[in-house]
């Protein structure tokens, strides 16, 4: 990460503009590593100011993938803070990258976030129906199929 990803100008901008970046040697903070559920290094963790981990990755990620994962973490934190416009913008951005592995999961959470905002489960189902259409072979399609098959 230190040789390839962190020096990348887009990564520098993303972390400096949108996060509080902190680096800690795991062995010197074992309690923190446990709370963040870090089971391998490097641990790449997005957390809110409430210290709850929102999105955890391990291992090397190239810059483009890393930025997408950071956006996903930001979206989860924004949803948790009820900043739904920001959350939906980020989820939509990830879901639009159809080939990205995180895209169907982003669409899944977009549905949950829409439901949390409106309290109308039809809003969730609308997003989940897109998962079935765009990623029919994915685990996420199997996750949402029950809810879509038993619509009121």
């Amino acid at each position: 990460m230190g040789a390839v990803t962190y020096p990348h100008p887009d990564v520098v901008k993303e972390l400096n503009d949108n996060f509080v970046p902190v680096k800690i040697e795991s062995a010197k903070a074992p309690e923190l590593a446990r709370r963040m559920n870090a089971r391998w290094l490097p641990g790449l963790i997005v957390a809110g100011a409430d210290e709850r981990p929102a999105h955890t990755q391990i291992g090397f990620l190239p810059p483009e993938d890393f930025i997408l994962e950071l956006h996903f973490g930001r979206a989860i934190v924004a949803m948790s803070r009820k900043l739904y416009d920001e959350a939906h913008r980020l989820f939509a951005e990830i879901a639009a990258r159809v080939e990205a592995e995180r895209a169907p999961e982003a669409c899944y959470w977009w549905g949950i976030s829409a439901y949390r905002q409106s309290k109308n489960f039809a809003d969730c189902q609308e997003h989940w129906a897109r998962i079935v259409a765009r990623w029919p072979e994915s685990l996420w399609t199997r996750k949402v199929s029950y809810a879509l098959d038993h619509r009121a």
Binding site: P21, I45, G48, A49
Partner: peptide, 30 residues
């Protein structure tokens, strides 16, 4: 250059003040 912090408690405080999430890089000894 990334403006890394190295103290968790200070990072939490700054996250609360700035409304930005924390990115934590847990690493092995360098």
């Amino acid at each position: 250059m990334i403006e890394w912090m190295e103290n968790w408690d200070e990072a939490v405080k700054r996250a609360g003040e700035s409304s930005r999430p924390i990115f934590l890089f847990l690493h092995s000894p360098s």
